[in-house]
Design a protein around this nucleic acid. Sequence first.
DNA 1: CCTACCGATCGGTAGG
DNA 2: CCTACCGATCGGTAGG
Lengths: 195, 195
Amino acid sequence: MARPKREDINDVNRRNDLVIAAALLFKEKGYHGTSMRDIARAINMQAGSPFYHFATKQDLLFAGVEAGLLACLADLEAIDPKALPPLEYFRAMARAHLRCLLETQGGMVPMVVDEWRYLEGPNLEAVLAIRHRFEALWQSALARLKDAGLVRRSDAMACRFFLSALHGAVRWYKPDGPMSPDEIADELVDWIRTR
Amino acid sequence: MARPKREDINDVNRRNDLVIAAALLFKEKGYHGTSMRDIARAINMQAGSPFYHFATKQDLLFAGVEAGLLACLADLEAIDPKALPPLEYFRAMARAHLRCLLETQGGMVPMVVDEWRYLEGPNLEAVLAIRHRFEALWQSALARLKDAGLVRRSDAMACRFFLSALHGAVRWYKPDGPMSPDEIADELVDWIRTR
DNA sequence: CCTACCGATCGGTAGG
DNA sequence: CCTACCGATCGGTAGG
């Protein structure tokens, strides 16, 4: 493969600036509460310039949601289930998941939790497909916990309960607060296990 | 107090129609994704007419959020803590909470969960004050559960975990699905207790 | 990427 | 409540 030329690198960098700035603004003010002009201004672009990188506002949302989900999924898949006993594996998953949510790129990932629902058509379907992979991974982690007798049930609903509780931290976590993402994850895991 | 005249009754009814129509649309498309024209059209009003009842779009959002929260809070406060043992009281609370969220006025209350964050100034403060009353109520219910040895911890974070898991049902509950709100609440309570 | 612009839509208002 | 309207802003485009 050819090495990218300097202009290409700059294009890619600016494109990435857009994705991050958009994600942060979407998180703060919502997708429909944020204008393309807001996003452009945040990285010192002119009003029409984002459309050089993304054909539509929706494409920009999709790029952020997909990147956030895939980065988080990769972190989770990097944890080897066979290398750890059930509880430790589950805890490592929870820690990685929450760290990714709360610490990536100045906290851009929480946007994914609330704003993916404004995606349409193929964009929405692509995101739902990635979400399925998440849930399958978590289901198997939870099933191991149940087999070890550490949790009462491990069906799809229990999985949703757990992920909702974990994702809820997005709404009250403060970076300068007393607890780190790892500590919050540990507390939740401790709270839901039966022994 | 004087009995309201017929015109007043109609005014109140139309005002209420607006609140409900707005809540349903906000839930579906988000606050900023819904226009006052959308809301007016939904109840066969003309574009400018909602402003006869509400000075601003924000006031209409506030009316819906406040009404939803207060109705739910009233349901919870109607349950007498002293009349039931800890687990049964907690379960009754969870059932009432979820029924209110999922069944009120064709499912308008979930809007509260996502859209209250677009409130500003005094409107936001008023809603946060009501939320504090919710959390205090749930904290005491959870504390009783802990005193009875049915749950590991009952601090503010455990309370948030629980409410996040409960509220999460808003995103996957289907009225025509296999489980009722009561059954979902029971499953969650069963899942989080340690014995 | 910037400049200059388009048609559409928005929240809100005046006057009845 | 309806009619008719306002200024502002929106997503997006053409041309360089």
